[in-house]
Design a protein around this nucleic acid. Structure first.
Lengths: 138, 138
DNA sequence: CTGACCTATGCAACGGAAGTGCATTTATTG
DNA sequence: CAATAAATGCACTTCCGTTGCATAGGTCAG
């Protein structure tokens, strides 16, 4: 519990009760989480608070945002050494068409692509879709 | 003009006046196009018609849909041999942070990724973001 | 040619999700 | 404790995708 407070403090986020709960929730889930997911889990809290909490987390490098192609923004906790901004640090994401969950494959970086003359890449997003390990094992 | 009619017929799409115009519009633009873009260009036509036209085009393999991370769906004409459904045929897309346009890099396929045990990829989406050739040349 | 029929188009409305402005509560600091 | 800043909650807006239903327009059989 105290570790979460410390973690938030280290990232320049004031550890309020709400924020600690949200962090804990994200830590317990091992899949990317949408604002609506969190809203369901914390029915009493206001949507805006949750929204702004996520945005604060994102800005301070606590979570990174994921666009998995479903049309809804999702978030996942950054790994200890996660440098989300740098191209070479971008891992890829896997979206399961069966259970509809999205997971970070932090070990799998996006390979370097040779672009045509004149194109300069600053960022990349790679999402693979298919059947995840949990669903294919059934 | 007649080629467009033929092209649509070949794909099982009845070539109405509206559809020919939309096809022509897409052909003239070399960048991915959103429903709103088309709506602007055809102010008299109804949003729904344009929407359904795009969906029809997509289903019949005339266009493919692109998710470039901006949150709005975009579409681009399929190349002659484009097999959008097959994993090995997936090209990548480049979104320019300067001019905000998204282009197909049809020559650049998404590299094969070795996934962890249990994961089966059926589809993939790779979007690179940065500065495009037109903007970097300035 | 004409009526029946199917398809395309148009209009209205809905729903989900992101986002903003402002008031209020809670925490921090002098 | 008072003054100030930050966090939370409420109301509302906007944007986009989508659907239901009515109408217009093209197609085909008789």
């Amino acid at each position: 519990m105290k570790e979460i407070e410390k973690k938030l403090n280290d990232n320049g986020v004031r550890p309020t009760a709400m924020r600690i709960l949200i962090y804990k929730y994200l830590a317990e889930k091992d899949v990317a989480t949408s604002l609506t997911d969190i809203e369901m889990a914390f029915a009493k809290a206001d949507r805006t608070t949750l929204f702004r909490t996520l945005k604060t987390f994102e800005k301070q490098g606590v979570v990174h945002q994921i666009d998995d192609g479903t049309g809804v923004q999702k978030y996942a906790l950054c790994e200890p050494g996660c440098n989300c901004e740098l191209e070479q640090d971008l891992h890829l994401h896997f979206h399961c068409n069966n259970c509809d969950e999205t997971v970070c494959l932090t070990e799998h970086k996006i390979p370097h692509i040779n672009l045509p003359e004149g194109f300069v890449a600053e960022d990349a997003n790679l999402v693979l879709k298919g059947i995840c390990d949990k669903c294919s094992g059934q």
